[in-house]
Design a protein around this nucleic acid. Sequence first.
DNA 1: TATTATAGGTCAAAGGTCCA
DNA 2: CTGGACCTTTGACCTATAAT
Lengths: 355, 355
Amino acid sequence: MTRMTSPQFCLICGDSADSLHFGALSCRACAAFFRRKVAGRRNIFRRCDRQCKVDTGMRKLCASCRYDKCLKVGMRESAVLSRLAQKNQNYKKPSGSPEECEPSTSTSGSILENLQNAYQKLEEARRKAFNITHDSVPQSSNYKRMNEVFYEDIKLVVENLVSTLQCPDISKEQQKLLHVHFLVPFILLEGGYKSTNSELFYLPSGDYIDETRIAEYYQNPDDLNDKSGEAAAEVFRPYWKLNRQTLKMHLDDVQLDLPELLFVTALVFYDYGLQDQTDDCIEMCKRMRSQILEELTDYEKNVRINDDHSYRVGQIIMVLQAIQRTVNMVHETREISLVYNLYERHSSIFETIKD
Amino acid sequence: MTRMTSPQFCLICGDSADSLHFGALSCRACAAFFRRKVAGRRNIFRRCDRQCKVDTGMRKLCASCRYDKCLKVGMRESAVLSRLAQKNQNYKKPSGSPEECEPSTSTSGSILENLQNAYQKLEEARRKAFNITHDSVPQSSNYKRMNEVFYEDIKLVVENLVSTLQCPDISKEQQKLLHVHFLVPFILLEGGYKSTNSELFYLPSGDYIDETRIAEYYQNPDDLNDKSGEAAAEVFRPYWKLNRQTLKMHLDDVQLDLPELLFVTALVFYDYGLQDQTDDCIEMCKRMRSQILEELTDYEKNVRINDDHSYRVGQIIMVLQAIQRTVNMVHETREISLVYNLYERHSSIFETIKD
DNA sequence: TATTATAGGTCAAAGGTCCA
DNA sequence: CTGGACCTTTGACCTATAAT
């Protein structure tokens, strides 16, 4: 704005001025000095009595006086972008070099890392609960056993996995909504994952159901008193057919690895478009999904050697559609309410965990 | 048309707005920013978690969030360089880097190209059928009119769009299965797409329904003889609430452009996991989906300037889940069978086309 | 033909990175 | 840590063009 023909001088050191920098006419050197000091945010050790003369020759001598003069002639700390960046917690360090490829899995506090830890704990708890040792051989199982397993397993999933999925600033009711909606798709998803490439269906206990011989196992209730057994069997009866048609086919196709399974798990959890979901909860889920997708793409780019990570991400996200279809088919059978009954029996767990 | 005397503000940064730019009210700076980013076709390095607030002070801080916001408030990439493109059909985008990839849209025989042609024909047919001229102004419409529009439109969709979607080596019954399953999600998807960023719901005829005043329009049947009118109104009644909850929210978020809409459309068509779908048909759909996903990733890499195309692809594929949920909710109302009745009336069209 | 709205082009100013 | 070379982005200002 002040474009004068006369030569101008740096208001700090008197050197020939470059242009306006951070709100004051200055040379590039003083501008760079000011930027570094602001960005560095370190205290400037004062070694003088504030009387230093700052000029071209002396400007190196006293940083504190030079900085004072910068402020005095009108430079504003807020004009340094990297200063703003620090106020903005979301700002990442820009990667100058193109070959920069820090795998973001190592980022502490990442969603994946949390989930990996939680899942490890879950598997550990399962080993204990179901007496799985490293040399135990998977056994053919039946529906009664399956019911017992899931009855026990839902407890473990809630304790170890669900409880670690953060829901910042969300009411307990809404959290519970997410929890309730999470369990069925998770059971479907994880079951399909563990049974990838197999004709058998693997339970969380490590045992399996041979789907080709389902009929004989199903007519084998030797304990008629156990109502919950029948209930769960009812719930999971339609599962086989539906699952094979939709979800299992997808999962066998996509061949998820464990981190990918966990990303999909998290996406399933932070679902939105649910009935009775509040706007706040939807916003939170959007934010979380955005973060998860970001981490997933980082994972595909940097950790897996896949060249075409976009394609891979697309394939993985398509699993969500398959899950959605399967869940909806299960819902249509109306027997899903029984699962919620199972959930209700454990709901005290939520109450104690979410204090 | 909306020339208000009150001062207007840039929808991106809140600065005082200049005028419409590339489809959105914005200041000159944001307009220039958007133009440069699109025209430059260089990747925007994302250094944040997508949560940056873009305002006058911060707008310089995060280019990727600023760009996202441009898209979100309605700026269209296609509006940049549109003049040049019109003047010179052979206009090539400036290639910043020598190894600039050839945009795959030009690939002859691609799925996208076929769909773009088909969709253009469909829109052309709609203009003729619904008497849309370049100077016709959208009218508020009602349910009776909506029914007429969809009754007519399904015919046009089948003739112009569905008929061009190839199903190699598939029996007519299976093709019909795909066609029938396609119509509802397509109507939902395209309606949501055309109504992006609007509170109104736009019909294929160009007219709109004002959802806030739905009740008064719904109780307005002046022709009780027209059974199909009532039928379709019944079908689409639950649509409004469900759609707003799930699909519309996604679509407003993702801001698909036309090619992306068409990719999603194709993915919806080549669905698998459908009841009564044969293995052959499933195999075909898998192949087609794979090809579509490939083309979509190419498109995101080469045509759109998005830095992390993986993230974009993931976002887009998530729309499939939202569609799936909405379709299933519509199915649950059981009124969907009426749509199939509408379909049946036109089924002769299939018979003549697929010889 | 003049006007208006919105597109594209240009360039100095400003910020950032890198290295000796 | 410093200074300065060098690069990229920004936004004010200007011109171009299509529709009216």
